[in-house]
Design a protein around this nucleic acid. Sequence first.
DNA 1: TAGATTGTTAATCGATTAACAATC
DNA 2: TAGATTGTTAATCGATTAACAATC
Lengths: 218, 218
Amino acid sequence: MPKERGGAKRLPETAITRLSIYRRALERLAAGHTYVSSARLSAITGFTAAQIRRDLAHFGQFGVPGTGYEVRALQMQLSRILGAGRSWRVALVGVGSLGSALLAYRAFQEQGFRVVAAFDNDLVKVGKRWEGIEIEHASRISGLCRELGVEIGVVTVPARAAQEAVSSLVAGGVKAILNFAPHRVEVPEGVRLRSVDLSVEMEALAFHLLHDPPVPRR
Amino acid sequence: MPKERGGAKRLPETAITRLSIYRRALERLAAGHTYVSSARLSAITGFTAAQIRRDLAHFGQFGVPGTGYEVRALQMQLSRILGAGRSWRVALVGVGSLGSALLAYRAFQEQGFRVVAAFDNDLVKVGKRWEGIEIEHASRISGLCRELGVEIGVVTVPARAAQEAVSSLVAGGVKAILNFAPHRVEVPEGVRLRSVDLSVEMEALAFHLLHDPPVPRR
DNA sequence: TAGATTGTTAATCGATTAACAATC
DNA sequence: TAGATTGTTAATCGATTAACAATC
């Protein structure tokens, strides 16, 4: 199997989140600047200028040597690449405290992530409305996701329910899932999974508190 | 400056979150198993057996060739290394929907992350009680964090307020911060920062939906 | 032209994987 | 002992950084 597709080298997996951060930086720059250099973007985002140029070069020659990148043009390119501006249909599985918070999260809606369905196992919650969405029973996940054309699933259920929630989404044709449940889940090839594990994040911080040497004052 | 400290090679930054996941797996294994091999841990966690052995070997020789790792003993070692079982004092800055969800998040409390203070800029919220904690005004962050001996800060404020929130925590002696604000923040040397950016996560998923080739059915 | 900055190549770095001698 | 599995070394892989010729 070839490691490269087409002529250009593959975009490193880690670069994708950087693109999103560049895009956000450009949004703010667009107000006051026509051009921006990789050096300036570096100062704003904290990534090195070399890395920024390299990331951007993956998608063609956007920059002008001696001048930099045209802010508007680059912003539009990145938006196109990331699918910003589009509207994405999102399903939420698990309407506990975290799930409710995400349902209410303005930034999501504003960025085009439109929650079109919400599911829960708890019969007390099913049928209730939440942020304008009626909560459906978890047994309806795959059917409704297919019917509504859900593209992205967000899973905020307890650990023990995570795999079943994910499997139902996959059965419903969902090809991208963001998992907040503190448990490993498996997805078939062709489905993208990203996981955010808050307990692990906290424990990683605790590790550093215990093991990093204190920095002497200067 | 030397690249290594002591004799052993440095633990890769990326290994720290794996340790936390191993620990969690062991917790569940402890019920029914005395020993566990790296191969079995691999099947459970999804990391390769070689990687697991390598990660664990950083902290000494826990395993028994031919037999595997003693579950209880390894569990205790990892707990000690990660500071699990300890109680950590946490401050929450920003009691919006996401912040409230985290305040209510049982798993946090159960894992020893004890929210001892909550702050907000909104005078309407200040003085109210939430999950047994009185919400204080953001101007009191550094003073109260120092007084209460807060060790970890969790920041769930809007982007524009992120840097100030973080700076106040740092001023209050907080050495580890988990930032959910969709904005870059800077911390001085000696302070650990981890960031979770939900918009970036979603946009990364959108990127894959747009660019990954569909997987042909077999 | 002189100065600035890109896009890209080569060098470096860090982390993962494979392989296997040592060990129970 | 035979079989299994560790801990570690060497090879591989992937991503980042430095450097600079090409370009505006």
